[in-house]
Simulated assay, not measured.
Amino acid sequence: MFFDRIDGNIIMNELSNRMKCKGKSNVLFIDNLIGNGKEETKKYISLVEKRNDEDPNDYLSSILHYDGKIIILDDKAKDYKGCTNKFLIDYIEKNFYINDLKDHSFENLCLTKILILISVRVWIEYKLHKISKSPLVIKKIVMELLVS
């Protein structure tokens, strides 16, 4: 069984056997989760798995960041063509995740929460970039850090 709280309601669902690693009854296997998700969600989550932190020119992971510009992956990204950091920003900024939380299945809730975490990271970079253009805001943040 798994328990979750959505909009003040406690959700209880069985964890299906297909979600578990073979031979490890209490361990979830992320590929099983991804295999059951919406196409768009699967793309963004699998991008995180494919990123190469050691390669500063890793093209696929460029959308997992915001450094002042919206990036849309092109034909070079093959299966990930069309993925963009704007989607991740909007997922939080425009509350798109709320619709994804309406499906209370274990698989969907796990994938949605993973996508929210990925999106929050990009959204924070986006917000920090926006406020960094205002010297007064930066000065206020620095002063607050020095005082605390």
Results as ranks from 00 to 15, higher is better:
58 D>P: 05
31 D>S: 06
22 K>M: 15
49 E>D: 04
56 P>C: 06
24 K>P: 07
44 Y>H: 02
58 D>A: 03
28 L>I: 13
26 N>Y: 13
25 S>C: 12
56 P>V: 11
51 R>D: 02
63 I>F: 01
48 V>Y: 09
17 N>R: 07
35 G>C: 07
20 K>F: 14
44 Y>E: 00
56 P>M: 08
60 L>K: 00
46 S>T: 01
15 L>Q: 08
20 K>C: 11
42 K>P: 02
17 N>T: 11
36 N>E: 15
23 G>P: 11
63 I>D: 00
66 Y>F: 09
23 G>Q: 10
58 D>H: 13
26 N>F: 07
50 K>W: 04
69 K>I: 03
39 E>N: 03
45 I>K: 13
26 N>Q: 13
36 N>Q: 10
55 D>K: 08
63 I>K: 00
41 T>R: 00
51 R>C: 08
43 K>A: 02
63 I>M: 00
50 K>R: 09
35 G>I: 04
27 V>N: 11
36 N>A: 15
23 G>V: 07
35 G>A: 09
48 V>S: 10
21 C>Y: 15
42 K>Y: 00
53 D>T: 08
39 E>T: 05
24 K>S: 04
31 D>I: 03
46 S>W: 01
55 D>W: 03
16 S>W: 08
59 Y>K: 04
19 M>R: 15
51 R>T: 07
26 N>S: 15
33 L>H: 12
39 E>P: 01
53 D>P: 06
57 N>Y: 06
32 N>E: 11
52 N>F: 05
